[in-house]
Simulated scan of single mutants.
Amino acid sequence: MASHRRPSQSGLTQSARVTVLSAAAATAAAALAAPVASAAPHEPGASGKAKVDRLFEEAEKATEQYDKADEHAKELRDEVKHAQDGIARGQEKINRMRGALGAIAGAQYRSGGIDPALALLLSSNPNTYLDQAAALDRLSERQSGALQDLQHEQRRLAQQRAEAGRKLSELERSRTEVARHKRTVESKLAEARRTLNALPTADRASFDRASRSGRTELPPLSGSAPAASSRAAAAVMAARSAIGKPYIWGANGPSGFDCSGLMQWSYARAGVGLPRTSQEQRYAGHQVPLSEAKPGDLVAYRHDASHIAMYVGNGQVVHAPYPGAPVRYDPVGMMPVSSVTRV
């Protein structure tokens, strides 16, 4: 019967095998110890600063959602006011129509309501009676038409009231959404402040300097392409005039701005209306390659366009970065660029 035992290793004595195993064990121990010995020294504030950056980014995204919800709420408030004004005008019209119908009914009542044949027999002047009867017929026709008009206006007013009721309900939902986004922004900013305050003094000072490292003086623009239009040039001048103004989330000037608020305000100074949020602003014109950017073009950042800036030439943008960092100039490549829009 064949044996299935594993043959012993040839060419190695017992002592040699012990030597090899001892060497292997020593090598493994050295390998396990190596990562600890060779690891880069930990930077105590690095993770904290990264968390602050992440929280500011999340707060900015929530701010854009707040801006969108707030803009929708403003539109709804205007629509509700318009609907309520229309209801008031409609009710006044119905009241006037009822008054006119009342006048017609009074005229008929004053005629006596006698059967026309009997009235003709009793009339001392048939011709006068016939004239009066014709006038009453016209009154009846007017009354019938006025009644139909009144019914139509009443139906229209009921529809207006129903629509206003729907708008009011939608406005309440929008207000709730605005409040929710506001709480999110405030929560993210509060957490960022707590994290920043917990950093060692040196790291906190380093982050503070870095958050204000953007230039407040426009770098040389020699050789830079001119603005794509006179409106774009005017928008650039407006944005430059905001340099140094504070970042205020949800604000669109003139004393403070968030990123999309600065773009909206700057182009408004040039007579151009832009949507409120950065996601909408990226589609407010036609997109061009970054290599063809001209002053006044809008540069959207991150895949979701949650941040936006204005190109001013020579590889520089002006923007409202985040809380604690005022409106400033920065390199166009400060973050991943998702699109460049020419308004």
Rank of each mutant, 00 (worst) to 15 (best):
Q9M: 10
S10W: 10
T13I: 02
S22H: 04
A23H: 04
A24P: 00
A25H: 10
A30P: 00
A39H: 12
A40R: 13
A50H: 13
K51M: 09
V52M: 06
E64H: 05
Q65P: 01
Y66M: 06
Q84F: 04
A88G: 01
R89K: 15
Q91D: 11
E92N: 14
M97Q: 15
L101R: 11
G102D: 15
Y109V: 05
R110Q: 12
S111N: 12
I114W: 07
I114C: 00
I114T: 14
D115T: 05
L118T: 13
L136H: 09
R138M: 11
R142C: 01
Q143Y: 12
A146E: 15
Q148H: 14
L150Y: 14
L150A: 15
Q151D: 14
R156F: 08
R156S: 14
L157I: 07
L171W: 02
E172G: 07
R175N: 13
R175L: 11
K182C: 04
T184N: 13
V185N: 05
A190H: 15
R193Q: 15
R204T: 09
D208L: 09
A210F: 00
E217L: 07
L218G: 07
A225R: 14
A225Y: 07
K245M: 06
A251V: 04
C259H: 01
S260Y: 03
M263H: 01
R269Q: 15
V272I: 15
V272S: 08
G273L: 09
R276Y: 10
T277K: 04
G296A: 08
H303E: 10
N314V: 02
N314F: 02
G315D: 09
V317W: 02
P321C: 08
Y322I: 03
P323N: 08
G324Q: 07
V327D: 07
Y329M: 08
M335G: 01
M335W: 12
V340P: 08
